[in-house]
Simulated assay, not measured.
Amino acid sequence: MTEPKGLAILICSPGVDRPDLCVTPLVHALVARAMDCEVEVHFAGPAIRWLVEGVSDARYPTPAREKPIRAFIEEAAASGVRLLACSMARSAWVADGERLVPECAGAVGAAAFVARTLDPAWGTMVF
């Protein structure tokens, strides 16, 4: 059996109105990095809005509002998680003049995540 090299996570469902659904994949990414796993988080569809500058700053995943989604994004990037924006989603969901957070490592096409699902050295999760 091939030893896993990395974990690719696709966040495509949780829109900015559901921070409670966005935090789980970010926590899983942090845990995988703590296990010395290479990790990519691909943001696609309306979930790409989480990477738009200012959007995640005041969105909290719990009623107690301990930590905004932005803090999880910063923590993930600081730990070495590669945060990637789907290029097609960016065209559809990010307006001209809007910028992505500096933690975003770049844009990739859908083929990048599909390639990870086909690579036996990578595990994948979809949220």
Rank of each mutant, 00 (worst) to 15 (best):
T2G: 00
L7D: 04
A8W: 03
I9M: 09
I11Y: 04
I11R: 07
C12S: 15
S13I: 11
P14S: 10
P14K: 12
G15I: 06
V16Q: 06
D17P: 00
R18K: 13
P19C: 06
D20W: 02
C22K: 00
V23M: 04
T24R: 11
T24D: 02
T24E: 09
P25L: 12
V27R: 14
A29W: 05
A29L: 11
V31P: 00
R33V: 14
M35S: 12
M35G: 08
V39S: 06
V39T: 07
V39A: 06
V41F: 04
V41N: 01
V41S: 02
F43M: 10
A44R: 10
P46K: 10
P46N: 05
A47S: 15
V55N: 14
S56C: 03
S56E: 01
D57Y: 03
D57K: 13
R59A: 15
R59H: 12
P61G: 02
P61K: 04
P63E: 06
A64M: 11
R65G: 06
R65D: 10
E66G: 05
E66N: 11
E66S: 12
K67D: 04
K67G: 00
P68I: 09
I69P: 07
R70G: 05
F72C: 03
I73R: 01
I73D: 00
E75L: 05
G80D: 03
G80C: 07
V81C: 13
R82G: 03
L84K: 09
C86I: 07
M88R: 12
M88L: 12
R90N: 10
S91P: 00
W93R: 05
W93H: 15
A95L: 15
A95D: 14
D96L: 09
G97L: 11
V101T: 08
E103D: 15
E103C: 05
E103S: 14
C104E: 02
A105G: 06
A105I: 09
V108W: 02
V108I: 11
V108P: 01
A111D: 12
F113H: 05
F113L: 12
R116F: 01
T117G: 04
W122H: 14
T124F: 11
M125D: 03
M125A: 15
F127T: 13
F127N: 15
